[in-house]
Amino acid sequence: MAGPPLLELDRLSTHYIAAQGARVVRAVDGVSLRVEAGETLGIVGESGSGKSTLALTLLRVLPPAARIVGGRMLLDGEDLVQKTEPEMQDIRGKKIAMILQDPMASLNPLFTIGNQVAEPIRVHEHETRRTAWQRARALLNAVRIPSPEARVKQYPHEMSGGMRQRIVGAIGISCEPRLLIADEPTTSLDLTIQAQYLNLLRELQRQHGLALIFITHNLGIVAKMCDQLAVMYAGRVVESGPVSRIFNAPVHPYTKALLNAIPRMDDPDRRLNAIEGQPPNLAALPPGCSFAPRCALAMPRCREAAPPEFTPEPGRTAHCWLAEPAAAAGRLIVSGAV
């Protein structure tokens, strides 16, 4: 892990701001993360925890009401927050690419597949139409679309959902980006196609040395795909670190609860624990730790002060008072109790 990481987020915050500034929604709040080249980071959390806003922040394609209000995001040491819009246009699709949630809606119904796959190649690499289309056919081949020669001339509605998702994937890797963000790319696919697609992504990652940010609420996929994991709650990363370490010894009660909510094949009798309470209202977060109202282990101080970042072990972080070094002794007992 020598040298600077590919991507480093430093206390990044994106808020939704109403017109008169009356209501502020802290969708992303002080997020710090690192992604090394070729590595896969999984980001998990409930709907509305700020995962998708974080992804859109990385590309700076936020809706008009959202603003990046603080922090830095360094790509190869260059701060993307400071870039101008034309500079960002050169980065989007070229250095950072993204795959959206809904493959059925992500392709423009009025243009051919070839046109849409070749488009970023023409814009970013100024290739001729001919060369760009040649590369588009090669890309379709790479994502296992049969007979790409014919498919490039077809329109999105002539393809199945799985095929469209692979085409969106092909668009993502068309300019050989360093980082690919996948925002729940498999939620709308059925299980077999899901597995195929995940394998495909992994293969592409190996071939192109891509770093991957995988946004999902499915911890099973995280276990299969990711090296690193970041758990988001109410706009913050509450716990991060290597997947295997977090799965074996979660620190934050929220992470534990999430892991407890996974059904397991090897232990069908185990009770599934749903997380009690309401998901947080991002416009009116409680003082202190935002998970405290739902936390079984909440202490008085949790409701008074938000926990800072602790380092329970090298390479891991946790925002929880239980991870405070002084409390670490007690933590072992507590985790046994859960």
Binding site: M88, Q89, D90, I91, A97, Q101, S106, N108, L110, V123
Partner: peptide, 26 residues
């Protein structure tokens, strides 16, 4: 507000191209 316009922006297309090509026709 559609996903394909979001994708067009994510691809790094200039705003004019996003509007003139992808949004206009639809």
């Amino acid at each position: 507000g559609s996903e394909y316009i979001k994708l067009a922006r994510i691809k790094g297309l200039p705003q004019t191209l996003v509007i003139a090509k992808h949004a206009f026709k639809n």
